[in-house]
Amino acid sequence: MEKFTRHTGTGVPLRQSNVDTDQIIPAVYLKRITRTGFEDALFAAWRKDPSFILNQEPYAAGSVLVAGPDFGTGSSREHAVWALKDYGFKAVLSSRFADIFRGNSGKQGLVAAQLDQSDIELIWKELENHPGAQVTVDLQSRTVTCGAIHAPFEIDDYTRWRLLEGLDDIGLTLQHADEIAAYEAARPSWKPATLPARP
């Protein structure tokens, strides 16, 4: 996982609450066998509408999604986070995230920053009045900056630390590779092995 300390990019105001994972990525895309290449699947149904925000310049190249409350509800599909990342989003701002979505984001290096709804409203206005305005998400200081707006955000300590260090779950576990090896050395020799295959 890439380290995340600070990111500045075009903000996309998504004035919608309860954006569920079926909206983020419809089920038909789950048949795919890859973990990347989901950019076309992101908000697939909504993107058929020419007036949808991501179909407009300069939002199409956005990398910070500013959404309404209860973002990411519904199924546990990790594909929702993959699709946001593949499209180019680095962070999502909302006043409330679904638990599983928040967990999946942390696993995949997408910052899910929780702001007060009043700050979200201010940022929406700023982005609508100045299309293409830049939003800075600073994970070190846990603040979001957009024009004259400076707002704090919440993210749990453990996730923040992992994102700052660029540690995915696997990377973290591998920091304990010695302990895993020590455990393996002490396993009884009669424990079954799949290899070699016996008739």
Binding site: D169, I170, T173, L174, I180, E184
Partner: peptide, 8 residues
């Protein structure tokens, strides 16, 4: 993936 990579 985690199990494939770490067996834990």
């Amino acid at each position: 993936e985690h199990v494939l990579a770490t067996q834990t």
